[in-house]
Design a binder for these strands. Structure first.
Lengths: 225, 225, 225, 225
DNA sequence: CATGAATGAGACTTCATTCAT
DNA sequence: AATGAATGAAGTCTCATTCAT
């Protein structure tokens, strides 16, 4: 990069606006799309609105993403599926009891997904999956399946180490997932809350649920869900 | 039923059939609407399809319900809000411990709502509520508020009787609701389930969750939601 | 049909307008579509324009024909493919020399197709076929193939009866078709004509071409177009 | 070519390559445009595709040709109208009978135009002319008019020399043109051909048609077009 | 000169709702 | 009361053309 670049940057700070924008566009569009998809759902989000929020015209959106469906897939990849490699590695490297691992898992999930806009994507797929089979299939492959696989490995680790009872692994997965899904809905649906009812403290809620699940998974007596 | 009805039955059986159908119309439409709303969501359900399933023409639907939104409200009233008077009475008359009352409450909810198509309406509102504010408000007033009120009275009964610890009532409500909501989603979303994973047994799942909640509400030590 | 119908027809002649229109609609739309397709081509004809010319709105067109392509197919069926059964029967029943049959065939083709708007459909497919493969395939199946089959049978009849030389039948078909295609283009393309050049007399032109072809098909000396 | 060119060739070979490409640009674009126009038609050919095939960017295309229409005109000039001066000269210098001249004319047309991509332009104008009146007018002026003029002079030469009967010259022109147009359509439309029908031999077809036309033009009895 | 990001008019199609019959 | 033909706003996507870099 020549020095002249910096010079012109100084005197004509707008000079590379277009150039910079070009690289930033997909990201800006993905963020706008995430916001709107989460807010209004897939079908109810108009392509033009996404473009407008990203500060571009209708046409520009289709310059980067060939269709609304592909835009959605890109949003999912960007915000959810792209992270599984990182998480898998993290849990591969985890040292400590599987109970701690599960507690950590649920806490970290809330931190990195549940509490963010990304969790709205899951709510969206729960709602509209049936109307957009291709998106549903994509989401299942890219998010649900890896997620379940990760949890399954954790549960199995606990069983193999003798820490957990030899429960039905799939049932255990649902027991872990259920409170997470509830939290997402609670976060993304004004529906559940009424009037001036007091708020949920998600971290605390999850912590309690974690203990409940672990109680059900505990070795000695009888096994849970 | 007036005597004239029987007379017409005898002498004008043809005329009467029509009459009966006429009176049955709204009910048939409501049932068709419930099916389709639950299956495809509110926005994605086409008015014509509802009419077709009820065996009438598009125009007839709008003869009985002035708009798709009013149709939806009628479906909600018919299937959910209309039942609260009955439930309130039932719990008013309940004799026994509040723990049993809560267990009974969750079990009976599954029997009468959770396991039926009606539960799809809740899922629907969770998903599409934001796009149809008027429907959301209606649902909140007609279903969420009475439901929360009922639960609140149960929890308070337990606290007042010294059976439950003096917990935050609203938090306790969420603890009860959460597994119900999860079950509804599990029932109405292919999304959550993957491949050949084993099924959940809803009754068992609810029973376990009930015990967990009751454990959290128990008197002695200290309680969390 | 009750007498009251006629009475109301007298006093309220507009009464059955809607009813009558309902039955006439498809036909009116097909005619409007034929006009516009022939005039502007398939791609350049806007659905709304077809509707407007038929005196209805955009939506109404799609009430009768699910897509622009299906509309086009219906136009082809109505104006071309539907007629082959009639023509086949006519030639089955033809008595006389095959030479006369061929002369008659070309003359009748001009009368019933070539000189009508329907011939514009052929011109259209020649132009746009490549851009709309499904339409092209449909047209080939429904028009080109039956047309060639009919001609092939005529030529073969002549050969079998010893009236024609045993020429290559397919070549002969092209020799018959060529002037017809030229006439269609001449009719539908302002392109070919220039300034004040005198007009072609299609009937005469075809008659001469028919003799030329028959000369080429004649038995004795050497054969083939 | 100025001497400076050679100097730059030696000392700035890099710079020169660019220069050469620069000069070649329009030609490359015209060739790409010819290919695509002939293949897909005028309306269906996208400007970006032309640019891509020529190895330049969309912007560059509009640098050389102010619009798609102007590009098309340039293609026509390059491939058709530009050649008439050469042809006129050739026929001016022709020595021999007018019959031979006409035979030669049709043969040479096939060699130099009919069998090349350029003939696709005629088919294109026949098809899309009506949708692009300015192009149609241009084509008429630049191609049709000179072409007809050339043929008219040939026919007239034959009549003046007593070789041909005093037929209607314009009719005679159509008789000559018709088989040429048919051949172009046959070459550029999959439409006309069906299944495995045997091919046409264009040279032979034209030769036969030439004799037919000449027969019609012959002096003695009475003539038709 | 060359690029390619950006635009926006315009095309097809859907569907809640109206209304003449 | 019942019908179903008709409407038209709205949504997705395309592509010739422009212009900052």
């Amino acid at each position: 990069m020549p020095a002249s670049r910096f010079i012109s940057d100084k005197f004509f700070p707008e000079r590379n606006k277009r150039e910079r924008r070009k690289e930033a566009r997909p990201g800006e569009l993905l963020e706008a799309a995430l916001d709107l998809f989460v807010d209004k759902g897939f079908a109810a989000t108009r392509a033009e609105e996404v473009a407008a929020r990203a500060g571009v015209s209708k046409g520009t959106l289709f310059l980067y993403f060939p269709s609304k469906e592909e835009l959605f897939k890109a949003v999912v990849t960007e915000n959810l599926s792209g992270r599984f490699t990182e998480w898998n590695a993290e849990f591969e490297a985890f040292e400590g009891s599987t109970s701690d691992m599960l507690r950590y898992c649920m806490r970290i999930w809330w931190e990195r997904v549940g509490s963010t806009k990304a969790s709205g994507l899951t709510k969206l797929m729960l709602s509209e999956g049936r109307n957009f089979p291709e998106l549903a299939e994509f989401y299942r492959q890219e998010v649900v399946r890896p997620g379940h696989a990760l949890l399954r490995r954790i549960i199995r680790r606990g069983i193999d180490s003798g820490e957990f009872a030899p429960v039905d692994v799939d049932h255990a997965i649902y027991a872990v997932i259920a409170p997470m899904i509830f939290l997402m809905l609670w976060k993304h649906s004004a529906m559940i809350c009424v009037d001036g009812e007091s708020e949920i403290d998600p971290e605390k809620y999850l912590a309690i649920q974690a203990e409940t699940v672990l109680h059900g998974l505990a070795m000695p007596p009888k096994a849970g869900p």
